[in-house]
Write a protein that binds this DNA or RNA. Structure first.
Lengths: 181, 181
DNA sequence: CGCGATGTGTGGAATACTCAACAAACCATA
DNA sequence: TATGGTTTGTTGAGTATTCCACACATCGCG
């Protein structure tokens, strides 16, 4: 983890913020590189210094958030669902520009599936079908079921402008998960 | 007016914003160059590329705003006081970070006097003591009187968090000035 | 007094960014 | 089909910024 030059951090931050803002305003296909560089107040060439094209740019942004979420998951692995969820929803709220545009724009199905994959993957260690309340059920069914539930809830939360504070929604989804795992 | 490199604009903007924010938080004497560079997210050395020290930095900021105000004055020279004031108060509102910290912090007496000088100077062409309602009065008295009135009103406006929209305060001070010049 | 800790101003080498220009691809319209 | 306008991705030279290091000043404290 070698130190990254402050200039690249600032440039990349500006560029990422710019494309997310633009995606909230118009269709991804209609966004040009110049749009992004103008919004980010950066030379057009600077974007190509860091990203191959706008698709690569979006990919990298998604990748970064998925990784951060996974990281949060693991650092909170010994928490209850309630507290673990809280960490996630706080992250959602901190990065609401990303998540709300990603989950509102219909062209972002790719992120939705990446997100679902992550949830399923991280829940896998939690579910036990050999004993307890889920004995006899299929693991993959349970995972898809509650994975979709969580992702859908997050979607709803952003589509409606985060009508409930993170603390509350984390608690309630935590209760529902604890009850079933 | 040759094109200025986008990088210097961004750096200077960040630096100026940083020092004003810090002045709103603590005493000017307690602000270090590192404080400013941290807040502005620029290297400490970058500040020295543009300014000799923090005093020079503040001077340059003041100078810039005084010049902008003077410019606004002249481009609006044929307006009534009401409309001319509106242009000013809009500029105040756009740059409220600067003006409110400059007029609130007690250490900024220097700006206040620069500001007053500007007002007096710009009003000089408006006042006429050879005829009309001000016949027989001393020009310098009138100028100081209404100069102080305007500056004081602006101070009050910022000290109270701009309780009135620019349009309104511009109108009312405009009426008071029109009545007396 | 001595002495860390902190702030200041300057220097040089590395490098990220800017700017302007270019050819190629694309796309709408005549 | 031709054509003008726009976007794209790349290049090269110039420059602003970064980063690190240094010497020096200041200051509170034992």
């Amino acid at each position: 983890m070698t130190k990254v030059d402050r200039r690249v951090l600032k440039s990349q931050e500006a560029i990422k913020k710019a494309i997310l803002e633009l995606m909230a305003e118009k269709n991804f296909d209609d966004i040009t590189i110049r749009d992004i560089s103008d919004r980010a107040n950066v030379n057009r060439g600077t974007i190509y210094l860091h990203y191959a094209d706008k698709y690569d740019l979006l990919d990298k942004i998604i990748e970064e958030h998925i990784n951060n979420l996974r990281e949060l998951c693991h650092s909170a692995s010994e928490m209850t669902f309630k507290d673990g969820n809280y960490v996630w929803f706080e992250y959602f709220a901190d990065n609401h520009l990303f998540f709300s545009t990603m989950l509102n724009t219909k062209s972002a199905a790719y992120f939705r599936s990446r997100f679902l994959d992550l949830v399923v993957q991280e829940y896998k260690v939690e579910v036990d079908v050999t004993e307890g309340k889920n004995q006899g059920l299929r693991e993959d069914v349970i995972l898809q079921f509650f994975g979709a539930a969580v992702v859908g809830t997050v979607e709803w939360w952003f589509r409606n402008g985060m009508p409930v504070p993170p603390r509350v929604i984390a608690e309630q989804t935590g209760i529902l998960l604890d009850r079933n795992f």
